[in-house]
Computed example of a mutant assay.
Amino acid sequence: MVNNRDTHTWLILIHQIPPKPDYFRVKIWRRLQKIGAVAVKQSVYVLPDTVQSFEDLHWIVKEIEGGGGTASLSRSVFLEGLSNDHIEALFTDARNEDYRIISQEGQGVLDRVSRLQSQQSLPLPTKLRKESLRLQRRFDEIVAIDFFQAPGRKSAAKVVLECKKLLVHNDTAVTSCRTLKNVKGKVWVTRQGLFIDRIGCIWLIRQFIDSSAQFKYIPEETYAPLKNEIRFDMFAAEFTHQGDKCSFEVLVEAFSLDAGSLAVLAQIVHDIDLKDDKFSRPETAGIRAVFSGITRKTDDDQIRLLRGLAIFDELYISLNESAQD
């Protein structure tokens, strides 16, 4: 929280951006929104006078100048006209609107979760999980720029917490009822259009769960399994995303494989699949580029799988060797 009643100073950015290209003006506007700046006049933005705000605005000035515009950054005190109370109200109104959107979207997630649970549909769809995680991340971002503790934060925090509780409750129920099943000799079913999470799951199943496992690839998002089938990384699957875990992580945890090089592999797959850079391992960027290249090169799942499995084999060996050094 910022207390400008004590400092009475603000950072003020005044800019002039060329009318073309349009995307550059929009880019700068979005950057200013992201750091929490509010406009007091056209092309005049204000932030509380903090070290972080100064650094953020400094880099935006450089970006504007690099794009052919002009920008000035100053530290100022408002003596007449605009008052501190008025400026603080601008920040509070902006954050309350952000919190209102979070609360509205979060309630939508809760309503959909409630309907699915009433239908005994477990686990929750991947898209719904990702939406809940996105709301949690967005809430954290808003809190970081809520300089004057807007009153809307309390209700938004409550909704976000309820979303998190429901997902955790659902995940616990799914894991406890499914990880004890005998999976040997089963047919594993997943969606077509293989990418790193599904390819990784297939590699993991063959290497550590059932070397003789058979696999079936379907075009549909939803699928009712036959008696001898197990679904993974798809809607309502026995093994799929849970909370902020990708399907590879869920399998590793469900079969108690979370150790050594597999734990590292799980972190890499997580960051590439969920795109959240949670673990930020140095190997991730290169592996992401390789798998993106494979999928751009071919739509044939068998070719994708063949190449992807080879990468997992080599990466696993490399990680083991590094651990022994």
Rank of each mutant, 00 (worst) to 15 (best):
D98K: 05
D140K: 09
Q104W: 15
F147C: 04
L73Y: 03
K127W: 11
G81D: 03
E55G: 07
R137Y: 13
D93G: 00
Q117F: 10
R138K: 15
L73F: 01
R115N: 13
D56W: 05
L128A: 12
R138E: 12
R115I: 07
D85M: 06
L82M: 00
E65W: 08
R134F: 15
G81F: 08
Q107G: 05
S72V: 05
L73N: 05
V109R: 11
G68Q: 15
I101Q: 12
Q120E: 14
Q120A: 15
A71S: 03
D146L: 05
Y99H: 14
G66T: 08
A94Y: 08
S83A: 04
I142N: 06
Q117K: 11
Y99T: 14
D56I: 05
E65F: 05
T92D: 09
P151H: 02
L57N: 11
E105W: 04
R115G: 05
Q136H: 14
E63L: 00
V109T: 11
R115W: 09
R75V: 03
E131A: 04
A144L: 03
D85R: 05
L128H: 08
E88S: 10
E88D: 08
L133W: 10
Q104D: 15
S118P: 11
S72T: 06
F54M: 03
R138L: 10
H86A: 14
G152Y: 00
R134S: 12
Q104F: 12
E105G: 05
Q119W: 07
H86P: 02
S118W: 02
E105R: 08
N84E: 14
S121K: 14
S114Q: 15
S76N: 09
V77W: 01
S114D: 15
I142P: 10
L135S: 09
D111F: 09
K127C: 02
F91M: 11
T92P: 14
G67S: 00
E65S: 12
R129W: 13
G81Y: 13
L122H: 09
G106Q: 01
R112M: 14
R95W: 04
I101G: 02
S132V: 09
H86T: 12
E97W: 00
A71H: 02
P123D: 06
F78E: 00
K127A: 11
D98V: 03
I87A: 04
Q107I: 00
S118C: 03
V109F: 10
F78V: 00
V143W: 12
A94N: 13
D146W: 01
I142L: 02
S83H: 04
H86C: 10
R138Q: 11
D85V: 12
T70D: 10
L82W: 09
E80S: 01
F139E: 09
P125T: 06
L79W: 04
K62R: 00
I87W: 04
E80M: 00
G106L: 04
F54V: 01
V61S: 08
L73T: 01
I64V: 07
Q119S: 14
E88L: 03
S72A: 12
I60T: 07
E63F: 02
G108L: 05
I101K: 07
S72H: 10
Q119E: 15
A150T: 01
R138F: 07
I142C: 14
L116D: 05
Y99S: 15
G66V: 06
K62L: 05
A150R: 01
D140E: 11
G69L: 02
S114K: 12
